[in-house]
Design a protein around this nucleic acid. Structure first.
Length: 650
RNA sequence: GCCUACGUAGCUCAGUGGUAGAGCACUUCCUUGGUAAGGAAGAGGUCGCCGGUUCAAUCCCGGCCGUAGGCUCCA
């Protein structure tokens, strides 16, 4: 037997017999390590821990602690689930079963539809396979062998996948017990490595994501290496449900939907109205500071304008059908840009007028397919925090970065700590289909945006094929306080439409030039942003946004007079205040105020009336404090003016 | 739009082929109580909408509308 040299990450070298596996190597270091080894990188290639190593190599072991291993576990659990499904329903066809963030799914072509009971049945079968503790093995296959093999066992979808793969691709199959799947791997060494898993939900899913294909049945699930992690994740899902803006929005009377109004058409209740007003105040203040003009435009417009803008060619399916008015077609506006272009053009512009920045909380209507409506996050009527900046190429970079700066200011105010800018680019294949057919301008503009972002020191990732039809965009992903992801704002560059609209300005030399146009919507739409805020804050808005800021809680009716005096004082100061004058005990009033998430609970009784003071109970602050009325007012005014975030320390 | 599930009081949910119930909320009365539920009474439903089957439908069947989880698409 010849020996091989294995080099470890710390550069130490050990000698083993050729054919040794990563598990063997782990075992030579310690049995616990061997047990916890899931996969290995051999010369930086991720492989199964159970494969023989025949030559000198660099090795890195991946144990249950690494995120690589977690992905492998999820993938193996998908196989485990597919094996269980095939045992129960032998006629079903397996298709694909990839890993997504913290979860996996597998799509099946099967006659029955999975019920909750079926999920339990499948889980039980999975448990059995785990206990059977099958070794997992890998077989390399040539293309022809693979096609022959999967044809023989009747896995037609696998045959289709192989036929569509690059012929140069190395193929392999994974086996555990009677189950075989076409797969790149790697996988956990045995089915016994999978201990803590849970099937989460079922749904329909088109084969290869194409709505012209057959609808398959998908099962989602998750798995972890420890019970604790699994429970933590399940708990996170539960917490997310509790914070769901649809649930909280109803409980806190922020918005509602009504069958008779129509789906995707939210009604803003008074509490929502307060939040909207505060957001608009913030936006207007900020935009004033950045030199924007506020404008207004109508909700309906003639079709010709949208023909010119390209909407009727490239965006029509997202627009409500035309209405005929005196023989002319009018549309509900899906975007504000054409109107803003017209506002730009309402008077001739010189270079001295640029950058020309116009903003509007414009109401737009989009025909979203019924199946994609989702609470406030996806609606058919929405009010955008929209603005367009018309500038020269020379000013572009500064204007673009100022927009980014504005984003960061907002993030700071709302306590958004995690965010990501995504530069969405065009792809050549869709020029003239999804995208305006001006290849050179696309590339030039994308370079400009990329340069601006790089010079501004802003981190971003690039995503091809996600641009708006008229230009590249920077989408902003944010994560709420509990880590749920949202696509919120967007920031787009339009290089083509200004020309179509004959937008121009006179430069220093008296020549006509076409301006660049930046679209930006840092606060997204009221709908999506407030939906996000509800979940981000879990319904506990900072004082400046809270629909009711102060609730007055008299100990008994005897102190109603004093409470009313305070109320009047607070209203005079512009505070949003409510008086709970029900004949209930203080405990009941406190409870209701807590449920309503009112940040400041002011308790007044005999003592307070005598001292002209108040006793403050604040959400998340255990200790109650007594204030003189004047000091209280000063503190609160300051907190509201600064738009401070909720303080949860005691 | 597609797949699947669901739709009973303001909210959360029971329930049945013979035209409905609970808790909370609401109204009234009693209680005037110091930091997360004091007590009693009352009112409240065309059981999503429209058809069909049946002597009889909230329940069974069909269509529509709405909602949820996904697919696809997006702020």
């Amino acid at each position: 037997m010849n020996n091989i040299k294995i080099t470890f990450p710390d550069n130490s070298v050990r000698s083993y017999e050729a054919g040794v596996t990563a598990i063997d190597i782990a075992n030579s270091i310690g049995p616990r390590l061997a047990k916890e080894t899931i996969a290995a990188s051999i010369n930086n290639n991720l492989v199964d821990a159970f494969l023989p190593i025949n030559n000198d190599a660099k090795i890195e072991l991946h144990t249950i602690k690494s995120s690589i291993s977690h992905d492998i576990l999820l993938h193996s659990t998908a196989h485990l689930m597919a094996q269980a499904v095939k045992r129960i329903w032998p006629d079903c066809q397996i298709t694909i079963g990839p890993v997504i963030e913290n979860r996996f799914f597998y799509d099946f072509d099967i006659d029955i539809t999975f019920s909750d009971n079926d999920l339990i049945k499948i889980e039980n079968e999975m448990q059995k396979i785990v206990e059977e503790n099958h070794n997992v093995s890998r077989t390399n296959l040539s293309r022809n062998e693979a096609i022959k093999f999967f044809k023989e066992i009747g896995d037609n979808y696998k045959v289709e996948i192989i036929n569509d793969l690059d012929p140069s691709e190395n193929l392999s199959s994974y086996h555990q017990g009677e189950f075989v799947d076409l797969c790149r791997g790697p996988h956990v060494p045995t089915t016994g490595h999978i201990k803590y898993f849970k099937l989460l939900s079922t749904s329909g899913a088109y084969w290869r994501g194409d709505e012209n294909n057959k609808m398959l049945q998908r099962i989602y699930g998750t798995a972890f290496f420890s019970k604790k992690e699994l429970n933590k994740y399940l708990n996170f899902l539960e917490e997310s449900k509790k914070r769901d803006h649809r649930k909280l929005g109803k409980e806190l009377s922020i918005f509602s939907f009504d069958d008779e109004v129509g789906s995707g058409l939210p009604l803003w209740l008074p509490n929502g109205g307060v939040i909207i007003n505060e957001l608009e105040k913030l936006a207007k203040e900020t935009e004033d500071r950045y030199g924007y003009h506020q404008v207004r435009s109508p909700h309906i417009t003639k079709g010709d304008l949208y023909k010119k803008s390209g909407h009727l060619d490239l965006y029509k399916e997202s627009m409500f059908p035309a209405m005929d008015i005196d023989g002319t077609e009018y549309y509900l506006k899906p975007m504000n840009c054409p109107h803003h272009h017209k506002i730009y053009n309402a008077s001739p512009k010189s270079y001295r007028d640029l950058p020309y920045r116009i903003a509007e909380y414009g109401t737009c209507y989009r025909y979203e397919k019924s199946g994609q409506l989702f609470g406030l996050m996806r609606v058919r009527s929405m009010q955008m925090n929209d603005a367009h900046i018309y500038c020269s190429e020379k000013d572009f970079k500064k204007e673009f970065l100022d927009v980014c700066k504005m984003y960061l200011e907002y993030f700071d105010i709302f306590g958004i700590e995690k965010y990501q800018m995504r530069l969405s680019l065009h792809d050549k294949a869709n020029l003239g289909k999804k995208y305006i057919n001006q290849p050179d301008l696309w590339i030039k503009t994308e370079d400009q945006v990329r340069n601006a972002l790089e010079e501004g020191g802003i981190n971003f990732t690039e995503i091809p094929g996600e641009a708006a039809f008229y230009g590249p965009k920077v989408d902003v992903q944010v994560w709420s306080a509990i880590g749920k992801e949202f696509t919120l704002a967007t920031n787009q560059v339009d290089f083509a439409i200004p020309r179509k609209f004959d937008l121009s300005y006179t430069d220093e030399h008296g020549n006509y030039k076409t301006p660049l146009c930046i679209h930006r919507a840092p606060l997204s739409t009221h709908e999506r942003f407030i939906g996000f805020l509800i979940e981000h804050f879990g319904g506990d808005f900072p004082l400046w946004l809270a629909p009711v800021q102060i609730v007055l809680l008299p100990i008994s009716d005897k102190y109603l007079n004093y409470a009313n005096n305070l109320k009047e004082k607070f209203v005079d100061r512009g505070f949003r205040v409510k008086l709970d004058d029900r004949p209930d005990k203080i405990g009941a009033k406190i409870r209701q105020s807590e449920i309503d998430r009112i940040p400041l609970m002011v308790v007044v009784g005999e003592k307070e009336e005598q001292d002209n003071s108040l006793s403050l109970r604040r959400r998340f602050i255990a200790k109650q404090r007594t204030f003189s009325v004047d000091n209280f007012i000063l503190d609160i005014q300051k907190e509201i003016m600064n738009r401070s975030l909720p303080n949860r320390e005691s």
